[in-house]
Amino acid sequence: MLEIEEVSIHFGNNPEVVSDATFTVNGGDRLAVIGETGSGKSVLLLAVLGLLPASARITGSIQLNGRELLGCRERELNQIRGKEIAYIPQGSGNGLNPLYTVGHQLCETIQKHRHCTRKEALLQAAALLESFGLEHGESLCRSYPFQLSGGMRQRVLIAMGIAAGAELVLADEPTKGLDRRRITLVEDAFHRLGERTLLCVTHDLRFAKDISSRVIVMYASQQIECGDSRSFFEEPLHPYSRAMLAALPEHGLHATMGFAPPRRDKDARRACRVYERCPWRSERCRKAPPLLAVGERKVRCWKYAD
C-alpha cells in the first residue's frame, strides 16, 4: 500500500533528519515507528502527507498504491489527504479547533469528501463517535473541545481522521500526555480501526506493543531495527532496542545507555550512530553498519554481521 524508498530529509544545510528510510506498509499492516524525540519519526509522517515546510529538501520515493507522492501538486495531495490517508495528530487537544463544536468539525471533514446534507453528516458523525466507544454521540457533537477529557479528545481526533473513509491511517504520538486510563481507551479505539492499515509514530512502548503487528526502531534519523512486533518485544536485537525495553519500569528501569554526546565530529559521523552510548561497541563500530538481515528481521549492528 505504502512504499517508502531511500527517503532522506534535510532542513537547510543542517545534517539530515531522516536518512535513507526504506520500508513497505502492506494493506492491513499495523506498523509502529518507535524511538526517542528527535529521531525523525514525525518528520517522516509529515513527508508522507506532503506537509513538510518549504525549507525541507527531500529525496527518494514515497508511493501510495503505486502512485508517487513526492512532487505531487497541492491540489492532488488535498484529494489524497483525508480520503486515502487519514492523519491523527497528538492527543493534547491541539488538533481540534477550540472555537467550534466537535460536531461542526467532524461534519466539515465528512462533507468535504462525501456528498451529503448537514443533517446526514451530523448523523454520521454521531455514529462514528459511538463506534469509538464514546457514548451519546449526538450530545457529544454539541460539545466544545474544552468540555472533553484528554482521552475523549484523542478518540474524537481518531474518528475525525477516518471520517472520510481513508484506508491508510497515520498517527503521530496519539498517547502523548495522557494518563494510563486514557491510554487504555485510546488503545481500544485503535483496535476498533478494524482492517485499516496503520502507521503509528510513538515513543510509548507499551502502546506500540498493544496495537502493532510490526515495529521499526529509529535512532538519530536512521532505521536501526525492524521486524514483527512479537519477536521484537520478546527479544530485541539492537543494543539501543534492548536498552529501551530494559528501561521500562516493569523491566526494572535500567539505565544501560550512556548520555548522548552534544555534537558528533567528523570521525563520529562515520561511525555507528549509537557508538558513544553503546555498551557493546568495538573497533569495527567506527564504521557505520548497514541494515543487516537476521532471519525475517533487520538490524543495523555489526554484531549480527557474522
Partner: peptide, 8 residues
C-alpha cells in the same frame, strides 16, 4: 520523555 531518558 522516552523510556531511556526516563530511566536516566
Amino acid at each position: 520523555l522516552d523510556v531511556i531518558s526516563q530511566a536516566q
